[in-house]
Design a protein around this nucleic acid. Structure first.
Length: 926
RNA sequence: GCCCGGGUGGCGGAACCGGUAGACGCAGAGGGCUUAAACCCCUCGGCUCCCCAGGGAGCGUGUGGGUUCGACUCCCACCCCGGGCACCA
């Protein structure tokens, strides 16, 4: 340990360090051509970096291929496309052909016990760490406990339900307080239970229509005791630190939306059933609150339900029931039966029933009705809202449906009023929609406070201060982000390094007892079911010798009987930190030596967060892997294990190779390979089908196998084609016929060096002529630029131009050796196999993998003579050849001398002459 | 509905900071080599029209305006395509 990562590519005396990482599986471990794009792109770049003198660690991503295929498929039971060994064998073969064969030295197999060990080690750090609400940094729970014991601080608000001081708490209450601070904790939480997969899923793994992201099975909500990771403690930093990252705005926006920070206030409304708390982003509109709503799942629903309808209750509020009890029970029951799908795909007509109870508006003492309605979600805020129909569209729709009053408390702008043909003094009741724009407060005052005339921000601040002073509310930041559900009922995954004593309390395994390996099992399939009420049965529960053990945890208790945790960690666990392991892959004392981490990933300049220099991955990990990994990395940073505060400084999202897919009149996919085109129409078995561009996949019957292309043209042709067809970040269709172009290019380059008849080298020792020098250096500069900016397509175009120049300048061979060698070196990162072979034929013994990449000589980049366009009134009317350094005057004289221009100028008045030296001349006529 | 991307020849795509639009490749046309085909090599090509084989004119980067001597590039409005979020108070 401690040696500067020999990495895998370390070269003595090459000090420029570079970490290149990729997450190569855009969507599961299927076989589609999106993968080679990422693979090849990073490989090209890594080869270029090595040749330009960088010290490179090039990770090959989070390796799922270390698994025995059958076990993997059975254990996960989630990849419809990866179910046979043949599939994996095909993928491996494909990688071999691409020259990217599985190399054990370069891969960190996350299923390797040595890797498990450190994943489990990090989990224990999470379990034994808390976050401090004041410092918002991870630190050992033991520190917090000592401070509480010494009376230096009190438990953070919300972590101590009893409210009594630490010294008066019994052992179990103290554990509960500490648990409420831990970054990894057990909790009975409503989870996403997916019987089809036999496991629970995290929020991020559930799609918007309530199905599993993998396998597309229905998902149900139910309470279960599960391991949770307190990612919410990092919400602010995960949000704020996005600003310093070199990531696409699209991904940053997705993370921002997912974290969903909103600032507002929590306000308490008094009701006969107790206080009802709401969260609002618009406390300034408190005076416009005309009713309240609680979600059907709200714990106070029952208490809020009155014994009888108050006098004068409108019939529409009662849901047709004789008593509030009946009405609320019917509504809550109906809401519970509606699936997530119905609830969101519905027509969004506002429904609800009155509870029969009123609440008191704290600012004006008004008695306002409390409703139960499903447009309020239990999962956000407090599950209850104050409704301000004048300034919230949803509330307005509900108010209109139930004939509730609408009170405007923010003056609409005059534009808004005129656009709706409203008089300035039109009452809010007449507004066609809620006013949500900026404006000053009106009709908002009581004996104590007056908001009238304040703008929205000032009014928010004033009312929040007032509420705090009265003890009726407080400023509050609310997040959409939830804690991360971290248990899975699967066999395959890291077992938790946790055992339970006879008291039922969780205990950490000591670090020196890691790794905890999975027990060998005959049958490790999850128990799946199609019944919503089925019970989760983790496969590990069937390994009885493993689950019940007698251990000495080194805690002074001696050997004791324990029961192991039966759940395993989700597949995201390993991918949260694997990039660190590449920096020090054989270290068996720590996950990564600090000096290695500092060298490769430490901050490079003032204010730099550090991290991987370039991370290539698909966009679909925006709120899964990329959020989880940032969270883990920040915890490791807080605990002092890494010096970088972010894992991936720069993120590059590669595009996918797409393919045309064809559907028949019923909308079913037909075999794309058998569709024929005729006269602009597409026919399958004689019947017309519709064509669409989409992702490749077996189910879409449009997958093309790169294998065939490799077979026919070789890996280099495939690499070149994939890189050439467009920029790396862009998705684009696969075109079988276009592949041949790159094959021809390689053949022409081959023939520059080798005589095909005799096999002899046909380069000449003569020096290149001026024209060739110019093309060579120009090409070199452009190719380098394309490489730096990951625009490999333009680099290949420039190499093609150089090749075209050489073949036409030397049709019989005899290309100057130094030019031929430069050409081969330029090509090397893109087509390494062919380049290596040519390099050897040119008489070099050593590989060109670390040969210096050609450099452009500035002297050859400037032309003596340039051709510039001459415009008349902005239209090009001629071209002139002038010395490159010609001044304005000389340019104008030359331009006027051009025969055609002279004709156009002869009987016109030149009003103005614009001359850009070296660029163009423009005559503006009167 | 909101938030991100993106619209350039028959096709994939080039074009630095506002300065020759269409590099490079595919497909296509014509020619060479060949008994023939394939491979390979050479030439041509944005669209429309005009003179007559070499040029000339007009129109052209989703649409409509604007700024500028000059706009694929900058500004305003709109249309279309792709992706994400979606009753988040």
């Amino acid at each position: 340990m401690g040696e500067l990562a020999e990495g895998f590519d370390a070269v003595a005396g090459r000090p420029k360090r570079y970490v290149l990482d990729m997450y190569p599986y855009p969507s599961g471990v299927g076989l589609h051509v999106g993968h080679p794009l990422g693979f090849i792109g990073t490989d090209v770049y890594a080869r270029y970096l090595r040749m330009t003198g960088h010290h490179v660690v090039h990770s090959m991503g989070y390796d799922a291929f270390g698994l025995p295929a059958e076990q993997y498929a059975l254990a996960t039971n989630t990849h419809p496309r990866l179910t046979t060994e043949a599939n994996i064998a095909t993928m491996r073969r494909q990688l071999r052909r691409l020259g990217l064969a599985h190399d054990p030295r370069r891969s960190v197999a996350t299923t390797d016990p040595a890797f498990y060990r450190w994943t489990q080690w990090i989990f224990l750090r999470l379990f034994e760490s808390c976050y401090d609400t004041e410092a918002d940094r991870a630190r050992p729970v033991a520190e917090l406990e000592a401070e509480l014991e010494a009376g230096d601080r009190e438990p953070a608000p919300g972590t101590n339900p009893s409210g009594r001081p630490w010294s008066e708490l019994d052992a179990s209450a103290r554990r509960a307080v500490l648990n409420a601070h831990r970054l990894a904790y057990l909790a009975e939480v409503p989870v996403n239970w997916c019987p089809g997969l036999g496991t629970v899923l995290s929020n991020e793994e559930v799609t918007a229509d309530g199905r599993s992201e993998r396998g597309n099975f229905p998902v149900f909500r139910r309470p279960m005791e599960q391991w949770m990771l307190r990612i919410t403690a990092y919400a602010d930093r995960l949000l704020d630190d996005l600003d310093g990252l070199d990531w696409s705005e699209a991904i940053k926006t997705q993370q921002r939306n997912w974290i969903g920070r909103s600032t507002g206030a929590q306000v308490r409304f008094a009701t006969p059933a107790g206080d009802l708390e709401v969260f609002t982003t618009r406390p300034d509109t408190l005076f416009g609150t005309t009713y309240m709503v609680v979600a059907p799942e709200h714990p106070l629903v029952e208490d809020l339900t009155a014994a009888a309808w108050p006098d004068g209750t409108p019939p529409a509020w009662t849901g047709g029931s004789a008593t509030p009890d009946e009405a609320v029970a019917a509504y809550v029951g109906a809401a519970a039966r509606r699936s997530e799908l119905d609830r969101q795909a519905g027509d969004r007509v506002k429904t609800g029933v009155f509870t029969g109870t009123t609440a008191t508006n704290p600012v004006n003492g008004a008695e306002i009705p409390v409703f139960v309605a499903d447009y309020v979600l239990m999962g956000y805020g407090t599950g209850a809202i104050m409704a301000v129909p004048a300034h919230d569209q949803r509330d307005l729709e509900f108010a209109r449906a139930f004939d509730l009053s609408v009170v405007g408390v923010v003056e609409p702008s005059s534009e808004w009023l005129t656009a709706r043909s409203l008089a300035p003094d039109a009452p809010a009741t007449n507004w066609p929609e809620a006013y949500v724009g900026a404006g000053v407060a009106m009709a908002s005052g009581n004996d104590d406070i007056a908001l009238d005339g304040l703008d929205v921000a000032a009014a928010k601040a004033a009312i929040t201060t007032w509420l705090e002073g009265k003890g009726m509310g407080a400023g509050k930041v609310q997040y959409k982000l939830r804690d991360w559900l971290f248990s899975r009922q699967r066999y395959w995954g890291e077992p938790f390094p946790i055992v339970f004593g006879t008291d039922g309390e969780p205990r950490a395994l000591p670090d020196d007892q890691l790794p905890l390996e999975l027990p060998p099992m005959e049958d490790f399939t999850p128990t799946t079911s199609d019944r919503e009420d089925s019970e989760p049965e983790p496969p590990l529960g069937r390994a009885e010798d493993w689950t019940s053990v007698t251990l000495d945890l080194g805690d002074g208790e001696g050997p004791q009987p324990y029961r192991r945790e039966l759940n395993t960690m989700p597949n995201w666990a390993g991918s949260c930190w694997y990039e660190l392991r590449y920096l020090d892959p054989t270290n068996d004392e720590m996950l990564v030596a600090p000096e290695n981490e500092r060298y490769w990933m430490g901050p490079q300049w003032d204010g730099d967060c550090g991290g991987v220099d370039l991370y290539v991955g698909g966009v679909e990990h925006a709120v899964l892997h990329l959020l989880y990994a940032r969270f883990w990395h920040k915890v490791l940073f807080d605990l002092g294990h890494v010096s970088s505060s972010e894992p991936y400084r720069r993120l590059f999202n590669q595009g996918l190779i797409q393919a045309f897919e064809y559907t028949d009149e019923r909308g079913f996919y037909v075999e794309a390979a058998q569709v024929v085109e005729s006269g602009g129409r597409y026919l399958f078995e004689g019947r017309p089908v519709t064509r669409q561009l989409g992702r490749m996949g077996k189910s879409r019957k449009n997958a093309v196998a790169p294998d065939e292309m490799c077979e026919r043209y070789g890996a280099d042709t495939l690499r070149l084609y994939e890189m050439f067809s467009g920029p790396l970040e862009q998705s684009r269709p696969w075109d079988d016929t276009a592949v041949v172009g790159m094959y021809r290019l390689l053949q022409r380059i081959w023939r520059v060096v080798v005589d095909e008849e005799t096999g002899a080298v046909r380069v000449a020792d003569a020096p290149p002529d001026q024209a060739t020098q110019r093309v060579l250096h120009r090409t070199t500069a452009s190719v380098r630029e394309g490489m730096e900016t990951l625009r490999f397509n333009t680099s290949i175009a420039r190499i093609t131009e150089l090749t075209n120049h050489l073949t036409s300048a030397h049709p019989e061979g005899g290309v100057p050796r130094e030019v031929a060698e430069a050409l081969v070196l330029l090509l090397a990162p893109l087509a390494p196999h062919a380049a290596e072979e040519l390099w050897a034929r040119l008489g070099h013994d050593a590989s060109l993998a670390h040969a210096p990449y050609p450099e452009a000589d500035e002297a050859w980049l400037v032309d003596d003579v340039v051709e510039v366009p001459v415009q008349v009134n902005g239209k090009v009317r001629g071209r002139i050849s002038v010395p490159a350094d010609a001044d304005r005057e000389a340019l104008e004289i030359a331009a006027r001398a051009d025969a055609k221009v002279a004709t156009l100028l002869s009987d016109a008045t030149v009003r103005k002459v614009v001359v850009v030296p070296g660029r163009m001349v423009n005559f503006v006529l009167a």
